[in-house]
Simulated assay, not measured.
Amino acid sequence: MTELRRGPVVPQVASLLRQRIHRGDWRPGDRLPNEVQLAAEFGVGRSSVREAVRLLAQDGLLDVRHGSGTFVAAGTAGTSDVRRLVRRARVLEVYEVRRALEVEAARLAAQRVRPEDIERLRADLRKRQDERGGDPAVFVDADLAFHRAVVELSGNALLLSLFTAAEPVLRQILTDLVRHETQLPDSSAAHADLLDALERGDPDAAVAATVANLDPVLRGLGSALA
């Protein structure tokens, strides 16, 4: 049985399924094991498997045929490029929302953070840095864990709810971007600046670091779509 990490289950199941497809465990046209088998393999409920399959079907990776099963979608390189463009469009919209909520979350977190919170953030950031250059899905999980921690420290339940709603889409598409795009900017310095601003309790600097982190990717996505 595959052991999942702590946190939302559905994105992790979707990520594992995506990894197995990209790795070639299932080829285009292959039928996946049924929900019961996958649920047993991942140690989750059937509803979590069903939702993860739905997400991958939306991205064009799976083809759900009612009465027959779930199959790896067949497609040419051209259709794959189109799907990637669609995913970029989705993440651009999500990034616009993400920027707005994370800027405000960083401002609030700088005012409310405690010394013990800084130690947790430092550990999260260290894990993010350790995963750079490794498995894209693991790196994205570590990156989002750091950002989620900042949003949690804002103390604003609505901001956290919005981030939680956007997180599955971000996880899916950022993993794809990290895996396939070679020109993504390195935002390590901006992450370190954000941690430093929070430790100093400086809201303006926290906002500036968040903007420096997110805006280059946002501009890059906009240019790619243009």
Rank of each mutant, 00 (worst) to 15 (best):
132 R>G: 03
181 E>T: 09
28 P>Y: 09
96 E>Y: 08
179 R>N: 11
55 L>P: 04
86 V>G: 10
122 R>I: 02
32 L>T: 05
124 D>M: 02
188 S>W: 01
52 A>L: 09
67 G>T: 15
197 A>M: 13
152 E>C: 15
61 L>V: 06
220 G>T: 04
73 A>E: 13
151 V>E: 02
113 V>F: 04
210 T>W: 13
4 L>D: 04
155 G>P: 03
54 R>Q: 15
59 D>F: 03
48 S>G: 03
188 S>L: 11
29 G>F: 04
224 A>W: 11
159 L>A: 10
78 G>L: 06
58 Q>G: 15
121 L>G: 07
54 R>N: 10
110 A>M: 09
74 A>P: 07
103 V>D: 07
83 R>P: 14
198 L>A: 01
55 L>V: 12
189 A>C: 03
98 R>T: 09
188 S>Q: 02
148 R>A: 03
187 S>L: 05
109 A>S: 07
193 D>P: 06
65 R>Y: 07
226 A>S: 12
19 Q>W: 04
71 F>Q: 02
74 A>M: 08
86 V>W: 13
110 A>E: 06
159 L>D: 06
34 N>T: 10
183 Q>M: 01
171 R>N: 06
120 R>G: 00
19 Q>G: 05
92 L>D: 07
97 V>E: 00
140 V>A: 00
129 Q>K: 15
84 R>P: 05
19 Q>S: 14
176 D>Q: 02
106 A>D: 07
37 Q>T: 15
66 H>F: 15
116 E>T: 07
72 V>W: 01
48 S>V: 02
218 L>G: 02
175 T>D: 09
165 A>M: 09
223 S>G: 05
100 A>S: 15
116 E>H: 11
174 L>R: 11
158 L>W: 13
74 A>R: 10
225 L>H: 14
73 A>Q: 07
104 E>M: 12
74 A>V: 14
93 E>N: 13
31 R>F: 02
224 A>D: 11
186 D>P: 00
131 E>F: 00
200 R>F: 11
79 T>Y: 10
12 Q>E: 02
215 D>Y: 15
73 A>I: 03
170 L>K: 12
44 V>N: 07
177 L>R: 10
77 A>H: 11
90 R>T: 07
94 V>D: 03
25 D>P: 13
11 P>Y: 13
180 H>W: 00
163 F>M: 07
86 V>D: 12
147 H>F: 03
164 T>H: 04
46 R>Q: 14
41 E>G: 04
121 L>V: 12
176 D>F: 02
79 T>N: 10
127 K>G: 03
85 L>T: 15
210 T>H: 15
175 T>F: 03
159 L>V: 04
147 H>P: 00
157 A>H: 09
115 P>H: 05
64 V>H: 08
15 S>P: 03
118 I>C: 09
54 R>S: 11
172 Q>L: 12
123 A>G: 12
64 V>D: 14
136 P>T: 01
45 G>Q: 11
59 D>L: 10
